[in-house]
Design a protein around this nucleic acid. Structure first.
Lengths: 355, 355
DNA sequence: TTTTTTACTGTGTTCGCACACACTATTATT
DNA sequence: AATAATAGTGTGTGCGAACACAGTAAAAAA
């Protein structure tokens, strides 16, 4: 059992009333310097920590979190993140937490801006931003800082602007890991890095994977010169993408594809049909990818713990805003290497992903 | 925000007092059939769910969990489990949770028995058993059932006796995964399965890994006949173990060792020094193993999420005993395939392991 | 019929804290 | 000197549920 010191004990020891102690704890002012000192001393002497349960019950205020992420239907990866977020909101509901999830069009930078403006107007107590567009996210976080609204950034790391916490994967290291996985499979000669984005310059989280992979090869003296291609499933149909890829693979004798997004499923099936020996590595345990993994159409999935990411973003904010726990500036989530033989323990396992 | 229905609302709707509602909710008796029906109807009509915060505050009772696991100093794997347990106990302290961790000698079945007897005498509200000895654990869980104390079993699955929940890995599938990892590394001919136990017959969680591996090979038509060896670091010195292994490797031209316990570090360094090309796979992200992984003395670590296991055992019990959530009969934890390139995201990451 | 038992039922206090409000000194303003 | 503004302080109520206790009516025993 915990520290049983209560406000009353502090009041007694400091020779003041509980009202004064309360004023000091919550910095409500209207306390003489002398009284404040006595209270602070008593608090530290007795090693006081508030009873969160009683506090929650007494406080009527609801803590409002606003979350902004891409439409779940546009990307299953975000759908999983949303699932984790929802679980988190549910888990902490009894702490008077209210979470509002807003969506933006992941192919429309202006839409992100308009939704984010709207959120700011509603003055939430804290914000979680799911980043797809570097520049726009940076601007938004700056505004949050100006308005003194704590903001957590998920998915894509921003280095140029401070925020409460970043949660996501280390994209660069993801590339290195891919390098390792490719190098174990010793017979690979020509690898193709495949991005799914309309603007790779505004998608550092993808670009960094490419850089990581290149660096791994050069640092480990592996003689492979990766090819790089950007496609965009928003502009091209599946057929068009496959056609484009097919030609590319033939021309450059590609024997391994690394898809930096979660949308490997869009091309894996057709490509593996045409080129059975091609080694396909892609990201994220979304249903379509999993199915292809079990059918040996995808060889490895590097899981970026999407559901966990969503849950952790809520939990971190709760730790900070409600439970008064210290939180980290950065949380790098694990990169799970998933084969047909261990995928089942990562999915249908909400209780574990949202531990 | 949640359902705002309170006891008072039910009382009003059912035309009784809050006291009666309370009696119904807690099945304290002394309620007429008629009143009870009215209350139950009102509860279901209004979709009542108790305010856990208020309940916790009002209830003075402390919920006592007793946990029994091997001495942490005997096995780093258990040390990590304990770390997760401790975090869990801390996290739920404000729900009036008190956890008592007891230790037993993992090489002494009688000691387990004596400690477990002692725990039963103290009549805790619930128990978590970290199993090393199948038979003794089964007997103990039976006693818990008889005394109506809910028990969760972790680490080694028991099929012959029911318990509240099992949490741990699927040992059989772990073996299959190892098979896959070996088969990717295409040049392996002679694999040695190495157990660390004094009695493999009483350690199903190790034996099942062996079976899984054998099955994987036969089902996938892989022509490898694994060798099997049991050693015991409690009886043999490191030197003796290495000596024994060295001879074995030479004699049978072993080119891959799969260590089914977490104690791969005891032999990996020396063996890899003598046989640089041998492929070593072992379990669990304990410091010694990690160091050897970074030094390329161990090739792959299959992580059994020990810290997570400890945390989840507490969280599951809290969900069941305090938060009135439904829990699963079985939680299989993920089997993380860990290379030098992704180990760092699994360690020093308590916030994530104990999400 | 009176007393006792049994079977219910309702009221009141408490948990630890937040917050509104009332109150008392002190200082500033007229 | 009277009044008003300011700074500081304490008390009281309620958050929603648990539980002790007092109370009432009907049935059983005397």
């Amino acid at each position: 059992m915990k520290n049983k010191i209560k406000i009353k004990d502090i009041a007694l020891r400091a020779g003041v009333s509980t009202g004064t102690v309360d004023r000091v704890i919550h910095k409500r002012g209207k306390v003489s310097k002398k009284a404040e000192d006595k209270v602070l001393k008593a608090m530290s002497d007795l090693d006081y920590s508030p009873n969160i349960i009683a506090r929650t019950l007494a406080r009527k205020k609801v803590t409002n979190f606003s979350i902004i992420i891409p439409y779940p239907y546009q990307d299953y990866y975000w759908k999983m993140i949303k699932s984790g977020i929802d679980t988190g909101i549910g888990d902490f509901e009894h702490f008077n937490l209210s979470g509002n999830v807003y969506f933006y069009d992941m192919f429309d930078e202006a839409h992100f801006q308009s939704i984010s403006e709207q959120i700011l107007k509603e003055e939430p107590d804290a914000i979680i931003v799911g980043s797809e567009f570097n520049q726009q996210t940076i601007q938004f976080v700056k505004k949050c800082n100006r308005n003194e609204i704590p903001a957590i950034v998920i998915n894509a790391e921003l280095n140029s602007v401070p925020c409460l916490s970043y949660i996501g994967t280390n994209s660069y290291q993801t590339g290195c890991l891919t390098g390792k996985l490719v190098s174990i499979k010793s017979n690979i000669k020509n690898i193709l890095i495949l991005h799914n984005t309309s603007n790779i310059q505004n998608a550092a989280h993808l670009k960094n994977k490419e850089i990581g992979l290149l660096d791994y090869f050069s640092e480990n003296n592996i003689d492979i010169q990766p090819h790089v291609l950007s496609i965009n499933d928003h502009l091209l149909s599946e057929l068009e993408m496959v056609k484009k890829l097919k030609d590319y693979i033939r021309k450059h004798q590609i024997d391994c594809i690394y898809n930096t997004s979660s949308k490997g499923y869009l091309i894996a099936k057709s490509i593996k049909g045409l080129f059975p020996d091609i080694y396909i590595i892609c990201h994220d345990l979304i249903d379509h990818n999993i199915l292809l993994l079990t059918e040996n159409k995808i060889d490895i999935i590097i899981n970026q713990s999407a559901e966990k990411l969503g849950y952790l973003s809520i939990k971190t904010l709760v730790n900070h805003m409600i439970l008064e726990k210290r939180i980290e500036k950065k949380y790098y989530l694990p990169l799970d290497v998933v084969y047909k033989e261990n995928y089942q323990f990562y999915i249908n396992n909400k209780d574990i992903n949202t531990l």
